[in-house]
Design a binder for these strands. Structure first.
Lengths: 192, 192
DNA sequence: TCCCTAATGCGACGGATGTTGCGTTAGGAT
DNA sequence: ATCCTAACGCAACATCCGTCGCATTAGGGA
């Protein structure tokens, strides 16, 4: 992450440049997709000089990493529907929406993660955080008496969400929301 | 795929060049990984001229696509252990081995698929083929009376294998073979 | 208000990557 | 054995990408 918000000189221009650049990244992504996302294009659209982009963000993946960080909702937590199955369905619907959005920032960042180590690490951290937060659905189920305490939350969440990522990202095939729901139900049933 | 094997002049030199190049690709991959895999390095190691590589394979992803095709075993089919669960465990162990091998050609091709459309399409075709062949484990289970005929083979295989890909490729975290087995069992149990 | 300097703008440079035109080699047909 | 030409080697060229030194601007403290 760039951490421009707490730099030694966070003043007006620096912050303005950053927001202009990130806005340009999003627009370019929307118009040309990840492949059409070049430093030069972002520079041209944002009016910020190439050199500045190289200095502050280093590369295209660096821009996406910053965008990912800017978009990260620090207050995010999974919805509480009252049942494990309901919670998992909600989680899967969020994942489904993120991966089928066009343009999908998530998809772009995944692509970037195969180019630079920094992007890969940023994405790994992001997902670690998300999966850790999502584990609360399992704790709630244990508290309700739905589950035994020994259930491995990560394995369970993997069962629920992995099919979505695999189908939509790696296999590059469509998946309906009903199918996404199905995988949530399979996961919920696997621990009963 | 390059299809050099049935080109208008498949003769000795062309075939020799191809095998030398693909061998060099594998060696470079082993030594420097995907990121260190450049056209120039392959040219230097194989003794084949840069221009020839650009003409026949176009790019690094093109080389990997060809390697993927050359490595595709046309006779492959899943092992028959006598039970759905046993078959799925065997499948998952193969996937696990392919993704944890070092170097993993599969991992390299996945990375390549995020760079060029041709690599992405080649990989999609490869997986379509593999999943279609693997569907036989479901048909066998139906014949044995283990399953109802309406079971969706693709969804079932997704439940079994997707967690491996997600954990090892996207989340970039380790997974034991025992955990891989676990996901096979969850998949088998989901249709009983 | 004035000054200091971090952040940005700017042009030139260098390296890596991919392309093109042409000469050379070798496989396969006659 | 001879010829034809696909495939390859070669070198020069074009382009893109990232870097560097220096000039300029503007934010924030004294």
């Amino acid at each position: 992450m760039i951490d421009a918000g707490r730099a030694s000189r966070p003043g007006g221009r620096t912050a303005r440049v950053r927001s202009e650049v990130l806005a340009a990244v999003e627009s370019e992504l929307a118009e040309h997709g990840y492949d059409g996302l070049t430093i030069d294009a972002v520079a041209a659209r944002s009016g910020v000089h190439r050199t500045t982009l190289y200095r502050r963000w280093k590369s295209v993946p660096g821009l996406l990493v910053d965008l990912l960080g800017a978009g990260a909702d620090d207050a995010w937590e999974p919805a509480d529907t009252g049942s494990l199955e309901g919670d998992l369905i909600e989680v899967n619907r969020e994942v489904h929406a993120a991966l089928t959005a066009r343009p999908s920032v998530t998809q772009a960042v995944i692509a970037a993660s195969f180019r630079t180590a920094e992007a890969a690490e940023a994405l790994t951290r992001f997902w670690e955080d998300r999966y850790a937060r999502t584990a609360v659905v399992v704790r709630r189920a244990v508290e309700r008496g739905e589950l035994a305490a020994e259930v491995d939350a990560h394995q369970l969440l993997l069962t629920a969400t992995a099919p979505l990522y695999h189908q939509l990202v790696l296999l590059r095939q469509p998946m309906t929301r009903a199918e996404a729901d199905h995988h949530a139900r399979v996961a919920a049933a696997s621990v009963r």
